[in-house]
Design a protein around this nucleic acid. Structure first.
Lengths: 335, 335
DNA sequence: TTGTAAGCGTTATCAT
DNA sequence: ATGATAACGCTTACAA
């Protein structure tokens, strides 16, 4: 039905082997011959059959992104960064949405991956979970985004430092009752959550500001969770004068809670988030900005680099890249 | 290196043909034989080679989603709906981000699609654009989401009706100077934009409310655009008392503009959006809700149904499904 | 019900 | 530099 490499070979008066070499830019092909083949191929509108090529070569030219969500700012932004690289590299992008690892999620069984992809990009998943470990054990090149693990390349921010920046900002403003809205109640293997909390604690300690156990609430990284968390903080005998929310979406929820109580963020209670969410500006939220799209880009670049390497040299330079964050001050924290 | 169908066949004492049939659930396999084969296969941890299977069968078990953006609420939510279906159906999901069709976008060249997918899901792209037309001409089953075209199955909302609902709501509140923040300046083939504007116009006309040409601004479906649009509306000699924003994100921008001017949405100027954005609640925005995730699900279901059909019967029932929208009233429109 | 064997369209090895 | 040709691992007539 469709044009095959044989048709092209015949039309160009060469063997299929030569066509294959010529079209893939391999060496040992006469310049003239190559040109002719390319011309003929284009004119015949020939496209290599991916299935055949994959079967014969053992490479798929495909990578998979495994992510808890699509429909949340961080994740979709990462995805966008990833795809910009893959589009350039002409690599196919397969996606799997696995759900909140803190609740219930279903990893793609390895059967959905084996033989379909050359590499894996895992977004913000606790790398110590059994399921994630299985992925790593698949033997494919892997890159983590927004999480890290021993012996696996990763890119993310320095969560401790980012939290320090946020907390220090509140301290500089003169606050002494600084609460945190954190992600999970119990520290899991998902390090960003606990790292951010650690940065907060360390900074308070360093500044000699007391840490009140009552000034900690869980927002589960969601808007609704942030709202609940803030509400409970407000209900305390001595409510905080400032809040560090470990994610912008939780900060949004907190802002909503404030409004519901007739309080104005920045005037009545200072609040700072962490993310650099698209809509932080809209809500006038001070936040520590992480370059999320770049995270996706960099991880994809790193993975592609791995793939281009001869299999032998691959595990060589496993590094955890930390990209810098920047504080953006807005109305939610005013002197 | 890896287990092949031959290994399984040998271990089960049958031919590869029988293994193939058994494992795919085809008829004409003895129950006992099938059971044995399944047992052996599982025990050997056998997984069919996708490349080989694709090459031999001509089917890829893959569909592609082509969308302008990942990192925007509507699009990522659609994607999530799509993937929930494909995960269930065990179909691979390939994604392409093509950029804003109103600005500049790069469709995946057909070479990136041919032979790689069995079907296409096209999200919110103007189907009369040459590039989109090319996709349709690819001969693959296609389903459109949030846009429609002659002879192509699609799912979306009734944009005219949704806009009517929004506008009528404002009229019911007693407003007589009702502006619109619309998407594009010029009607392109992207029907939702013009349909929403049409619904607005028709409703005003039906209610005998005059239509002021000054009460129309372009928000380009973005927050920033919406803010600019609202700002320009406010600058007019007789500013509107109510605004219909053709998307929630533009409404968000409008709200921001209001705040900047010291105006309170709902009290000083009524505003209603269209989308049912996650954060509409946060911003207390009245909006006409479309079931976006369902849109993705339904389109995926429809496409999968097509794929399961014998090739001959495919073009049969090309229908444009319109799903209902509902008005959610919040603080941005109070009596 | 099961087996045989001819593809499917490349890639890659080994000659030439 | 080019050509023959054996894989690659499965599906699917067709035969038995």
């Amino acid at each position: 039905m469709s044009i095959t490499i044989r048709d092209v070979a015949a039309a160009a008066g060469v063997s299929t082997a030569t066509v294959s070499r010529a079209l893939r830019g391999l060496p040992h092909v006469d310049a003239e011959t190559r040109e002719r083949i390319e011309r003929v191929a284009k004119q015949m509108d020939y496209v290599v059959s991916p299935s055949a090529s994959r079967l014969a070569s053992g490479r798929t030219g495909t990578i998979a992104v495994i992510t808890p969500f699509f429909a949340r700012w961080f994740f979709s932004t990462v995805l966008s960064g990833v795809e910009s690289v893959l589009q350039r590299e002409e690599i196919d992008l397969l996606v799997f949405e696995v759900g909140d690892p803190a609740v219930s999620y279903r990893m793609p069984p390895e059967q959905r991956l084996r033989g379909r992809v050359d590499g894996l990009l895992v977004v913000a998943l606790p790398s110590d979970e059994a399921e994630v470990a299985e992925l790593l054990a698949l033997g494919l090149p892997v890159s983590l985004i927004g999480a890290s693990a021993e012996g696996v390349p990763s890119v993310g921010i320095d969560d401790v430092a980012a939290a320090r920046t946020a907390t220090q900002h509140l301290i500089n403003l003169g606050h002494e009752r600084i609460a945190i809205i954190t992600g999970q109640p119990n520290p899991t293997g998902f390090t960003p959550a606990s790292d951010r909390e650690r940065g907060y604690r360390e900074t308070l300690a360093a500044a000699g500001v007391s840490l009140d156990a009552q000034h900690r609430a869980h927002g589960y990284f969601t808007v609704a969770g942030g709202e609940q968390a803030m509400t409970s903080l407000l209900a305390e005998p001595r409510p905080p004068t400032a809040v560090f929310a470990a994610s912008d979406e939780m900060a949004f929820g907190a802002i909503r809670a404030l409004r519901r109580h007739g309080l104005v963020p920045g005037r009545d209670i200072a609040i700072v988030g962490l993310d650099g969410h698209d809509l932080a500006d809209l809500l006038d939220l001070t936040t520590v900005v992480q370059p999320v799209r770049d995270l996706g880009r960099m991880a994809a670049d790193a993975l592609v680099a791995q793939l281009r390497l001869p299999v032998a040299d691959r595990g060589a330079a496993v590094k955890a890249t930390l990209v810098p964050t920047t504080l953006t001050v807005r109305g939610s924290t005013v002197p």
